[in-house]
């Protein structure tokens, strides 16, 4: 081997620490999950082996199937609500707020909660949605309802609301980014050719912001697929998700079973991401 000169080696040396950290805390852990998913569990510890029992258990159990369906339900609902709320917000910021300064400032206003504690943001819903919470007090005070609404907290509704609240910035930011990149001359040109306001939106703005929607959707899908904290805190005892199932299995040290579940989760998530990438080409956004 010839000794390479410093300029050729330099980028490799600079990129090495990040590569090492990611290998240690991302690649090796996930490979080990794959390995352990074939191990045996004898009731109190795991032993190296090659068994497909963990996977057979997953695919023959009704509970797993139901849990997956429920997880997909959360993914679908959270995706829909983040998109329906996030798109108009991003659209307003990029097309209706006049100055760049204001656009950036209002966008930052939306991002600030993202940097604070998720747990606190979830707890914050309790005094609003609880049985004796503000929403129920207001509704009963105005005489709209006689009994407090029970479904507001510790329900699937609360889980979707909580996740929408936590993760919506992951939808807004990529959409905002792709909307800001749209050449405003295209909009003017379409208007000059006689397109209506809605026509411009449908034929010009929406297609050009599709990559942003796709990136946002990837974030939402991957975040919600493995969710267990919101499901636990806001869903009460009943709500089920695949993340929560894995967490429960880890709690009872059934690592091989949890690992097999995690592998299935990873593959399902990857398939969803690939599907999104097939529908929309995001390459030009990167």
């Amino acid at each position: 081997m010839t000794v390479k000169s410093w300029p050729t080696l330099k980028p490799y040396v600079l990129a090495a620490p990040q590569t090492v950290l990611l290998l240690t805390f991302l690649v090796i852990p996930i490979l080990l999950i794959g390995v352990v998913s074939f191990w045996e569990f004898n009731g109190y510890s795991m032993t190296p082996a090659f068994t497909l029992n963990n996977y057979i258990g997953i695919f023959t159990s009704d509970v797993t199937l139901k849990t997956y369906l429920n997880t997909f339900k959360f993914v679908g609902l959270v995706w829909l609500s983040t998109l329906m709320i996030g798109y108009p917000v991003a659209y307003f910021l990029s097309f209706h707020v006049p100055k760049l300064q204001w656009q950036v400032l209002l966008f930052l206003l939306c991002t600030i909660p993202f940097w604070t504690s998720n747990i606190i943001r979830m707890i914050s819903w309790v005094p609003l949605l609880g049985k004796e919470g503000l929403v129920n007090q207001l509704l009963m005070g105005t005489g709209l309802i006689q009994q407090p609404l029970e479904f507001l907290l510790y329900s699937d509704f609360a889980v979707v609301l909580g996740m929408t609240h936590l993760y919506i910035i992951f939808m807004i930011a990529p959409i905002f980014n792709s909307l800001m990149r749209i050449d405003r001359n295209l909009v003017t040109a379409a208007e000059d050719m006689g397109a209506s306001g809605f026509g411009v939106f449908k034929e010009v703005i929406l297609p050009l912001s599709a990559p942003g929607i796709a990136i946002g959707s990837i974030f939402i899908v991957t975040l919600v697929m493995g969710e267990f904290v919101t499901v636990r805190l806001m869903g009460g005892g009943q709500a089920a998700s695949i993340g929560k199932l894995i967490q429960t299995q880890i709690g009872s040290v059934q690592y091989p079973l949890a690992a097999a579940n995690a592998m299935v989760l990873l593959i399902v998530t990857l398939m969803l991401v690939i599907t999104i990438l097939r529908v929309v080409n995001i390459r030009k956004e990167l």
């Binding site: 852990p29 991957t222 493995g226 690992a259 995690a262």
Partner: peptide, 13 residues
Amino acid sequence: IVPSILISLGIGV
């Protein structure tokens, strides 16, 4: 973007 439970479980394992 990897589901966070995989990181937690993976490092634990």
